[in-house]
Nucleic acid binder design. Structure first.
Lengths: 231, 231
DNA sequence: GTCTATAAACAGATAGAC
DNA sequence: GTCTATCTGTTTATAGAC
């Protein structure tokens, strides 16, 4: 009997059954291939081979290729939520009290986003997958939007309000946060163009740092401008 | 005998031969389908049907599906160059003399980019196509990079230098321009998420105007910050 | 649960009539 | 140049042995 539906990613690394290992390997291999060559570009045979699993196991565990897509979406949601929880544990969990503290926290959040979305190899698979799902909204997109996108955006908006005084649910705040996130994601998506134009061989820590310092500077002056508008 | 390779888009609308019409219809249909469902997701049969053409005509005119991909890339390059030429004809062709004029021109360029990339239906096909080509650099990407991406980016960098005094070929300038372009492109790519989060039904002129006003304001303060750094 | 074999549909490319 | 028919390989899904 095929398994229900949802499964958290990093729960049982050691004591997992062989079936769970197979299942997880398939999801990870699928994410990698979906991210690089796209859903249609990846065949179930390639995925099974990359996961060192059998072709039939996809049908068994996920019902078919479409079920695998949903499992990948759930995997991404779990992954990002783990990441968010770890980030929350590292920095002050409660909303910062002063605008200055909020501004500093926004900078940190922005830098972390660059670190993950641009530098992390995982993001090279996740970001293209998510954005492809977005262009033709499927059930997979619904889950990612509700599980990752909206919470992240809302969190940014909340800190933005603390920093600028602009209400978190105002159109202006939401748009400002979109421009913030858009910058970051773009450096992942247009990576090839960036590399060539910058004359870089790779976007490593040094390059990310150069990018992030400019972005955080822009963020700082943008906050100042928004803040002065309301004083 | 199959045709050479390159063909400009809007050259001969009236006096074009039937063959040219077929060829153009195929390219346009292919762009639409490649943009929406991806290269692998679009079958040659679908493309031919959408173009009201025959399946065999793809092989005849382009040698195969891969040739059609290149033709689409060339079509995009021609389209964007036409657009750039028209924009250049409308505004002062020569570099602006004062920093203030340069700043104003940057704002106009940014607004035009929002108008095209976010509001234009054509961009809904072009942007996803280009970004997909970018993730696995093919010959199609080479042509688009050289024909569209680099010229556009260089032009922005040149005006940026006029506005801020920061050298056009400096890393900082290039990165700043990337953040500028990235914002714009993101609103196209993440359109579904933006719509839902904003509670919008569509991103029309009013919404684009709201977005652009925030982006240009951010641009203005960013320029001011860069400029003061150098004084 | 895992694996193999196979079915049924579909892909892109091609040959040849018109 | 256009169009039809067909070839060849590949796709996903499935049935059934182990």
């Amino acid at each position: 009997m095929p398994r229900p539906a949802t499964k958290r990613p990093g729960d049982d690394d050691s004591a997992s059954s062989s079936a769970e290992q197979t299942r997880k390997a398939l999801v990870i291999a699928a994410l990698r291939l979906f991210g690089t060559v796209g859903y249609d570009g990846a065949s179930t045979r390639e995925i099974a081979a990359a996961a060192n699993a059998n072709l039939g196991s996809i049908a068994y565990h996920f019902g078919g290729k479409e079920g695998l897509r949903l499992a990948v979406a759930d995997y991404i949601v779990g992954l990002m939520q783990d990441l968010a929880a770890r980030a929350a544990a590292a920095s002050p969990p409660l909303p910062p009290a002063t605008p200055e503290a909020a501004e500093a926290q926004l900078s940190i959040m922005l830098e972390r986003m660059f670190g993950f979305f641009v530098a992390s190899p995982q993001a090279a698979e996740i970001v293209p997958f998510v954005l492809r799902e977005m262009s033709a909204p499927t059930d997979a997109f619904e889950r990612i939007y509700a599980g990752v996108f909206e919470p992240l955006h809302k969190r940014f908006c909340g800190v933005w309000e603390m920093a600028t005084g602009e209400p978190a649910d105002s159109a202006g705040t939401k748009i400002s946060v979109f421009t913030l996130i858009g910058q970051v994601v773009y450096f992942r998506l247009a990576r090839q163009a960036v590399l060539r134009r910058m004359g870089w061989k790779d976007i490593g820590p040094a390059e990310v740092s150069a990018i992030a310092s400019i972005a955080t500077r822009n963020l700082r002056v943008a906050i100042a401008a928004h803040r002065s508008d309301r004083s």
